[in-house]
Each structure stands twice: as structure tokens, then as C-alpha cells.
Design a protein around this nucleic acid. Structure first.
Length: 827
RNA sequence: GCGAAUGUGGCGAAAUUGGCAUACGCGCUAGACUUAGGAUCUAGUGGGCUUAGUCCCGUGGGGGUUCGAGUCCCCCCAUUCGCACCA
């Protein structure tokens, strides 16, 4: 022990000396490596993980410590329960803000990142979190990046990474493309985003769509979050149907979930970007079609959908043939059909699809009823439960399910289509035209015959690090600033000696966070991304806590990578995060979202300065249920601070003159009285159960009850008080450690066994039984626990107040529940 | 429009199995100590009342089940979040 404990003074007579206690214990923990995670694999393990932060320049926000305190309480509690606890922290340090700052100032993002990380680390240490800092990881660290690139190589080898010319979301202000998921955020910021074809790296997440969907069922995650992932994956069962184009050899394939309405298809619609558009358009319509396509290309998906009130479209002049009835139906193009979903083409059944109905009304196209039950003149009839097929040949009279099956069989037998499951989920656009990201371990080899070969760098060439650049500005051509560094870009293929160019795209921020939870298990391994034995022991994560903002992106991508690694035999579980909890956002004191513009931002540093870290921790947990959105309240902070002061005064003599802390005279080595024991054991039980269930607010209120009761006593049995300190420890570790030490213990309480409660003291031998007449409370009765129903009934019938209410009336029924109540029903 | 969650004092909230509604904290009121109190401690604090009674009402609104409903069922309203032409 190197820490100096000689000066616990009472300089601040009214408030306990948190500003001395806290830094001192933080120093002690650091020097003694109190929270270093052991590697005794015979112990039961518990892996409790926070979503690691992006170290922004603004520093820690009060929202961060909310989830972090929750996991820290769990970690400290589990350690005391004898678990080998893995509780690490790191940095998701690639990201746009550092790069944009670099563009503006010319300061290398690595420098900004390093400074920000230092701030974050210092702030987190000031709150007293029990992280094993020896396992700290940083996604921008070359040693970490090496394995991110290695995992990409595995994906590539597995055929899950490919390059494709795809319409991307191009943002001219940022000079980069965006993932679909990132678009709404940027538009909100006022940036423009439009479609532009570009050669991009894609990851084949769609190959895992089904498993990502079905495996959700096994996870202990919030239902709403699972629902969000289900919606994002968007599975729908239907059929692909091929429509011949009249007078040509071409055909249009559509996806439909309603093959039972095929006879009602009165026209077809292609997305404006559909490859067949150009081919089928007649000369007469060519001008109108071209104008329409041009207008559509200037809109993004959001404008084409959400903002479009009226349906627009243009006739191509061509006709298709309905395979069910050989009818000639017109082919239109319209931007309400998206190239990115299904086949980019639909059969329009205006009678039974709302969008098609609207479109048909706008353009005066025929609406035909093929499902009876509604009135297609007024609205599309889409009921699949009650509708019955009509005007539909061999399925007439059938309900949805039978009709669906029969049509699919017919399509397959006649070679006109097939059963098909379609997903909304699209492949993951994995490249960014930025500097501050992981370079792809890829070279484009130029063969003498002129063809280009995409080749992975050999494993021993990893990590491929970022070169220094003079300007961080996007090149403007759609390529990253890396493209301008010729000495870096031009290289040779070590295998063939042929000239090659490096890939100049970088990976998105999500890459590093897809596997960091694995790296924590074996943070310094230079031979592998994570040792197999360690992974088998630590994985999967038992509890993962973070915000809802990562509901679909990070959590879906990480699950995808995990499944790939599982398939390749690198990890032992199908899913990375067994249990997941979203902490609710903390609002400003005014009930609005904390924001600089509202001036309602609370800085954790200020709270720690004024009240101490233990108060910050305790208040964040006392505010309400973890999952809930709740407003900050400075008065509430003072409330929990008062509680901690009371705890201190329960033990320590109030004497402003004293140089060192001395025990209050009430702390005595006496045998505990039954009343204190009852209080203590009830508190042990409730605090333990509440921690397990993440109900920290009620655990704290029970400790407050304990303190309020003990406060009234002149004698506070030492053993009782000592046990209480252990209960408080996960919540207010600095104060608890200090009291523990003052009670004469040499070492930290971090691994003291969690107190056990004795059921003898948690149940009272006398209980209050409620006496009711007609369900209304009339009196209460104190009886021995377990008093028989018959005895309760007899006692109730002798009770004066009860008698007053049943006098002169007929007793119809008596309900007597032992230890609860007696209810006499009279008429 | 679709989906999910949530509605309890002046405020944050509790009530774990259908059994005392409002624990705990804030705020407020009164008192004690004090030169002082923005410290501390004690007591009180859902609403109503010509009968101040251990009376009546009371958990978003309406109905229902039950001896008994914040809790279970049905309908409605509000708020928040997510999705949104997904064929």
C-alpha cells in the first residue's frame, strides 16, 4: 500500500471530506491494481461491458456516467460475490469530428484523439470506475487496427466483401458518401445528399439476414430494440413473378407478397433507375421519360417517399403481358418504386394496394376487384384475413393463405416465378472517402494484359498504417485524401512484383466497434485477434449497457461480424451480447434534451468538484429506473449528498476541531439488538436483489431507510455498521473504502464477500393484518405471523370498528388470507 | 399511417404474487438548536367537507371481472420513442 492515509481531517465540518477521500482511493486502486482482471479460469466469470465512447472534444457528459455507474455497481457487486469480473474500457476513436477538425486546423487527428482520450480517461478515473485499465483498447491504435484489417481479410476470403458500382448517398458538403443509415442525420444538419454511382466496398450482411433475425429470439434484450432490428431486417414472404414484355424477348421480374392478386395487376411500374427502362421506352415517350428520370435522380429516398404527397410517374409506351390472363398492361416508371427494394419493379394491383390505388387514381388506370370484401371504388381493399379471391380463375373463392400457395405452385410449375423471401436489409456499404479510418488491406494489381486484380495484403504486411498527409480535405473527386499521396498509393505486389495501387477508401467507424468486446478478452495479443481459450472463457458478454442510438447499426453489425467469426471457428458463441440494457437519456433540468444552445448542460466535473464522485454516482442511480428518460435535478443531487453526509456522521464524531476522523461514541462493540439485525438483514436482502435486477434506485432508498433508522439510535453495533459499509460499497466506493479502513481493515473491501442475509431476520414474527368490511379498510390488527384464517376471522368479528360496520347486517361472505387481511362482506 | 413503451402527489418516483396507494428523495409548512442559516435535527405534508369523521373521493378517461384492481380484460385519450410508399 503506497497511499498516504494519515490526513483524513474534518476541515469541512458540515460535509464529509470527499475531496480528500476520493482522489486518495483512486490512487490506491491504481497503485495496487485492485481491479486487474485475473486469469484464473476455474472461477465463474462475469463479463460486464459498457458501450465504449467516441472521445469527443467536449469531454464526458452526464449521460456517460449513467450506464457506466450501473455497470460499475454490477462489476463491484459481482466481484464481492466471487466472480472473476471482466469490466474494461476503451475508445472508439476513429470518427468524423476529429477529421473535420483536422481539415479546418491541419492538426493530425491522432493528436486530437490522443488529447481527447486523455481527458476522457481522467474524467472516468475521477468517478472511480473499477475498470481494468491494463486492458484499455483504442480502435486507432495500430496494434488494434491490425486485427480489424485481419478480420476484414477473413470476411474477404469468405466471399463476404466485394466491390460494386452502386448508387451511393453522395454528400457534396462532406465530400464523401454516406451509409443509408447516416443519411437522415446529415440531412437534419442541413446537408444535401443525392444518389451517385460509385465503386464501393460492400459487406454481404444480407447473407446473414435470416440468422440475424431468428437468433434475436434467444436474446435477453429489450423487446422494443429487438423489434427495431426485426423491422430493419424487414423479412417478407412472397413470390417472384416474371412478366413478359409485349413484342420483345425481355421480361420484368417483380417481387410481390400478394401473388393471390395477380389477376388484378392492371399495370406495371419500374423504378426510374431500373436497367430495362431505357430498353422498353418507346420513341414517343423517350423525352418525357428522360425528364422524369433526371428529376428523380436529384431526389434522395427521403424526398421520394416521405415528402412526396402526390404520386408521380410517366408511361414508357411499352406493355407487359400478365401471365395469368395474357392481358396487355402498360409499363410505367414512377419514383414510388425503389430500385433498392425487391427487384426494383412491381406489378401494380390498384384494387388491393393503397399506393397502387392512389397512383391508378392519379393517372386514370383501371382498378379491378380480385378480392371480394371491400369496395375498390373507394379504397384499396388489403384485408388478408377476410378477403376472398374473385375474378381469379382457379383460385376463386379461396382465402389468402390457400390462394397464395396455389398461385406459387402454379408459377413454379409453369416456370413463371418462384417462392421468395425478401429482406429490406441491404448489403452494408463499407467504404468511406475519408482519411481517419482503417485503410483496407487491399491492393489493386495491374497485370500486363491490362486487367486489374483485387488482392488482399498478406497477413504479415498488417497493419497497413495511414500515411501522413498534408491536407485532410477530401480530394473532391469522391476519393479520400489518401488518393493524393502517390508514394503511398503506388506500390508493388510482393508476390508477383507487379505494380499495384493501394485501396484509397477507408473503413467506416463501425468497423472497430464490431469486435472490441473480443479484444478486451485478450487486449495485447500480437499473434491473434483474441486467444481461443480466453474467448471461450470470457465470451459471450453477460451484460451490455448502452444507449438506444446504437439499436440497429452497431448492434446489428457487431452481431454480423460475430456470426462470421463463429462460422470460421474463431469464436465459440453464436451471439456476442446475451443481455442488453439501454439506459435512458438524461435530460436537462428544464426537461429538454441537454444542449449547448439551451444552456442546460451539466458537466460531471462540476458535480464532482461540488459534491464528489460518490454523490454523482449515487444520484445518477437514484433518479429513477435505469432504462427511463429522466431530467437532471440539482436539488436531488443535494439530497443524495445529504444522505452520504449522514452516512459519514453515523460513524464519525462531529467535531470541527478534530485533526483526524474519530468514531462516534455510538459505534460500539456490542452484540447487535434484534431490531438492528432485522433492519440490516432486510437491507442486505433488498439491496442484493435490487442490484441483480438493476433496480438501483430502490436499493438506494432501502439504504436510506437503514440510515434514517440507525440515525435515531444511540448505540450502533459495530458489526451491523460494518456490514452496511459493504452494501454501500458498489454505489459509493470511495466513502465505503474509507469507512472500511477507519474500522481497522488494512486492505480494500473490493473482494470482501458480499454479506448474506439470514431469513430469520427478514421476516417479522408479527404482521399487521388489515380488517375490511365490503373491501373498505376499517381497522388493522397485529397478529403472530402465520395465524390461521379461522382465527383471523374470529378476531375480526370481535373487533369494535368492524362490529360497528356489520351490525344489523347479514354477513354474506368472509375472506380471510393469513398474514394479509380479513374482508367481511355484508348486505 | 404502422409498431412499441409510458401515464400514480407540487416534482423525481415506489408498490416484486390481485390485498394498507403514494415507500425513498426533492419541494413546502411548523418547531428545536443558533448571532445567523442556504448547516443539522424533530414533526407534518394526495384532495374534499355545513356532520373534521380513523368520513367521502382519489393511480389519464370510460366500462368490465373480483369479496377486493395502480396491478387482470375491453374501448378511448395523451405523451415519448422507433419505423414509414418495403410492393
Amino acid at each position: 500500500m503506497f497511499t498516504d492515509f494519515s490526513t483524513t481531517s474534518l476541515r469541512h465540518s458540515m460535509r464529509y471530506p470527499f475531496n480528500e477521500i476520493e482522489p486518495r482511493w483512486q490512487k490506491y486502486w491504481e497503485e495496487n491494481k485492485t481491479f486487474k482482471t485475473g486469469e484464473d479460469f476455474s472461477m465463474p466469470k462475469y463479463y460486464v461491458l459498457d458501450m465504449f465512447p467516441y472521445p469527443s472534444g467536449a469531454g464526458l457528459h452526464v449521460g456517460h456516467p449513467e450506464g457506466y455507474t450501473a455497470t460499475d455497481i454490477i462489476a463491484r457487486y459481482k466481484r464481492m460475490r466471487g466472480f472473476n469480473v471482466l469490466h474494461p474500457m476503451g475508445w472508439d476513436a476513429f470518427g468524423l469530428p476529429a477529421e473535420q477538425y483536422a481539415v479546418k486546423t491541419g492538426v493530425h487527428p491522432a493528436i486530437t484523439t490522443k488529447q481527447n482520450v486523455e481527458t476522457f480517461r481522467r474524467q472516468l478515473k475521477m468517478i472511480g470506475f473499477s475498470y481494468d485499465w491494463d486492458r484499455e483498447v483504442n480502435t486507432t491504435d495500430e496494434k488494434y487496427m491490425k486485427w480489424t484489417q485481419w478480420i476484414f481479410s477473413q470476411l474477404h476470403k469468405a466471399g463476404l466483401a466485394y466491390m460494386a458500382e452502386v448508387p451511393v448517398n453522395w454528400c457534396p458538403e462532406l465530400g464523401t458518401v454516406l451509409a443509408n443509415e447516416e443519411v437522415p442525420e446529415q440531412i437534419e444538419k442541413g446537408f444535401t445528399v443525392w444518389r451517385r454511382p460509385m465503386r464501393q466496398w460492400m459487406l454481404k450482411i444480407t447473407a446473414y439476414a435470416e440468422r440475424l433475425l431468428t437468433d434475436l429470439d434467444e436474446l435477453d434484450w429489450p423487446e422494443s430494440l429487438k423489434e427495431m432490428q426485426r423491422n430493419w431486417i424487414g423479412r417478407s414472404e412472397g413470390a417472384e413473378v416474371r412478366f413478359d414484355i409485349d413484342a420483345t424477348d425481355d421480361s420484368i421480374t417483380v417481387f410481390t407478397t400478394r401473388p393471390d392478386t395477380l389477376w388484378g395487376a392492371t399495370y406495371m411500374v419500374l423504378a426510374p433507375e431500373h436497367p430495362l427502362v431505357d430498353k422498353v421506352t418507346t420513341d414517343a415517350q423517350r423525352k418525357a421519360v428522360a425528364a422524369y428520370i433526371d428529376a428523380a435522380s436529384r431526389k434522395n429516398d427521403l424526398e421520394r417517399t416521405e415528402l412526396a404527397k402526390e404520386k408521380t410517374g410517366v408511361f414508357t409506351g411499352a406493355y407487359a403481358v400478365n401471365p395469368m390472363n395474357d392481358e396487355r398492361i402498360p409499363i410505367w416508371i414512377a419514383d414510388y418504386v425503389l430500385m433498392t427494394y425487391g427487384t426494383g419493379a412491381i406489378m401494380a394491383v390498384p384494387g388491393h394496394d393503397e399506393r397502387d390505388w392512389e397512383f391508378a387514381r392519379s393517372f386514370d388506370l383501371p382498378i379491378r376487384e380480385v378480392i371480394a370484401g371491400g369496395n375498390v371504388d373507394e379504397a384499396a381493399y388489403t384485408d388478408t384475413e377476410n378477403g376472398v379471391a374473385v375474378n381469379s380463375d382457379f383460385i376463386d373463392g379461396l382465402g389468402y393463405t390457400e390462394a397464395f400457395e396455389k398461385v406459387v405452385v402454379w408459377l413454379e410449375e409453369n416456370g413463371r416465378g418462384r417462392r421468395k423471401v425478401n429482406y429490406k436489409l441491404r448489403d452494408w456499404l463499407f467504404s468511406r472517402q475519408r482519411y481517419w479510418g482503417e485503410p483496407f488491406p487491399i491492393i489493386h494489381v495491374k497485370h500486363p494484359d491490362g486487367h486489374e486484380e483485387i488482392k488482399l495484403l498478406p497477413e504479415d504486411a498488417l497493419p497497413l498504417t495511414l500515411p501522413t498527409v498534408e491536407s485532410y480535405k477530401p480530394s473532391g473527386t469522391g476519393e479520400s485524401p489518401l488518393a493524393t499521396i502517390e508514394s503511398w498509393v503506388n506500390t508493388t505486389d510482393s508476390e508477383t512484383g507487379l505494380p499495384a495501387m493501394r485501396e484509397t477508401n477507408t473503413m467506416p467507424q463501425w468497423a472497430g466497434s464490431c469486435w472490441y468486446y473480443l479484444r478486451f478478452m485478450d487486449a495485447h495479443n500480437d499473434e491473434m485477434f483474441c486467444d481461443k481459450e480466453k474467448e471461450a472463457y470470457w465470451g459471450p458478454v453477460d451484460l451490455y449497457v448502452g444507449g438506444t442510438e446504437h439499436a440497429v447499426l452497431h448492434l446489428l453489425y457487431a452481431r454480423f461480424w460475430h456470426k462470421v467469426l463463429y462460422d470460421l471457428g474463431h469464436v465459440s458463441s453464436k451471439e456476442p451480447f446475451l443481455r442488453l440494457v439501454n439506459q435512458g437519456m438524461i435530460l436537462g433540468e428544464d426537461g429538454r434534451k441537454m444542449s449547448k444552445s439551451f444552456g442546460n448542460v451539466i458537466n460531471p466535473d462540476d458535480v464532482i468538484r461540488d459534491y464528489g464522485a460518490d454523490t454523482l454516482r449515487l444520484f445518477e442511480m437514484f433518479m429513477g429506473p435505469l432504462e427511463q428518460v429522466k431530467p437532471w435535478n440539482t436539488k436531488g443531487v443535494e439530497g443524495v449528498h445529504r444522505f452520504l453526509n449522514r452516512v459519514w456522521r453515523l460513524f464519525i464524531k462531529e467535531d470541527p476541531e478534530a485533526a483526524t476522523a474519530e468514531f462516534d461514541a455510538s459505534i460500539q462493540d456490542v452484540e447487535a439488538d434484534t431490531e438492528s439485525l432485522r433492519l440490516l438483514h432486510k437491507t442486505i436482502k433488498k439491496v442484493g436483489e435490487d442490484i441483480e435486477a438493476l433496480r438501483f434506485n430502490t436499493a438506494i432508498s432501502q439504504m436510506m431507510i437503514f440510515v434514517n433508522e440507525m440515525n435515531k439510535k444511540d448505540v450502533r453495533p459495530r458489526a451491523v455498521m460494518e456490514t452496511f459499509v459493504l452494501l454501500l460499497a458498489p454505489f459509493a466506493p470511495h466513502l465505503a473504502e474509507e469507512l472500511w479502513r477507519l474500522m481497522g481493515h488494512e486492505a480494500t473491501l473490493a473482494r470482501e464477500p458480499w454479506p448474506a442475509f439470514d431469513p430469520v431476520y427478514t421476516v417479522d414474527d408479527e404482521v399487521e393484518v388489515i380488517l375490511q368490511v365490503n373491501g373498505k379498510l376499517r381497522d388493522k390488527l397485529l397478529v403472530a405471523k402465520g395465524t390461521a384464517a379461522a382465527d383471523l376471522e374470529a378476531a375480526a368479528k370481535e373487533n369494535e370498528k368492524v362490529l360497528a360496520h356489520i351490525e344489523g347486517k347479514t354477513v354474506v361472505k368472509v375472506i380471510a388470507v393469513p398474514d394479509k387481511l380479513v374482508n367481511i362482506v355484508v348486505r
